[in-house]
């Protein structure tokens, strides 16, 4: 099945839950609870607490991230919030403000 894509002009104000990969080019405000992978593209803006298995951020995230496997902050991303994940990667050039908790 096709992955779920939130396009660049889309604004979702509410809660997203699901069991498949999610690519965000647009804006999501509220809450995201997913059991798979979230990819926040450079144009993506998330103002939400996030629960997921893995997440890659190239855009902007304001909110707490809880990943059961892995969180990766790419260069040029902007993340404000606390990150909790067993594996956390923060690339050179990434902006991050918050606490890191790797105890899972």
């Amino acid at each position: 099945m096709a992955n779920t894509v939130i396009g660049s002009t889309i604004v979702i104000d509410g809660e997203i839950s699901g069991e498949e990969d999610l690519t965000v080019l647009g804006t999501v405000k509220g809450r995201i609870a997913l059991r798979e992978h979230i990819h926040v593209e450079p144009t993506g803006v998330i103002e939400a607490n996030i629960e997921t298995a893995t997440i890659t951020v190239e855009g902007t995230v304001t909110g707490d991230i809880h990943a059961t496997e892995r969180a990766e902050l790419k260069s040029n991303c902007r993340v404000v919030g606390d990150i909790r994940a067993p594996r956390i990667l923060i690339a050179d050039g990434a902006s991050f403000k918050g606490t890191v908790d790797m105890e899972g």
């Binding site: 894509v5 999610l22 080019l25």
Partner: peptide, 24 residues
């Protein structure tokens, strides 16, 4: 880059969706 927005079969959105593109 995928241009159109798709919410897959397991996705459940509760709230409001606004946009200026096609939504599936």
């Amino acid at each position: 880059m995928p241009a159109s927005t798709t919410l897959g079969p397991t996705i459940h959105v509760r709230g409001r969706i606004l946009g200026e593109e096609d939504l599936r």
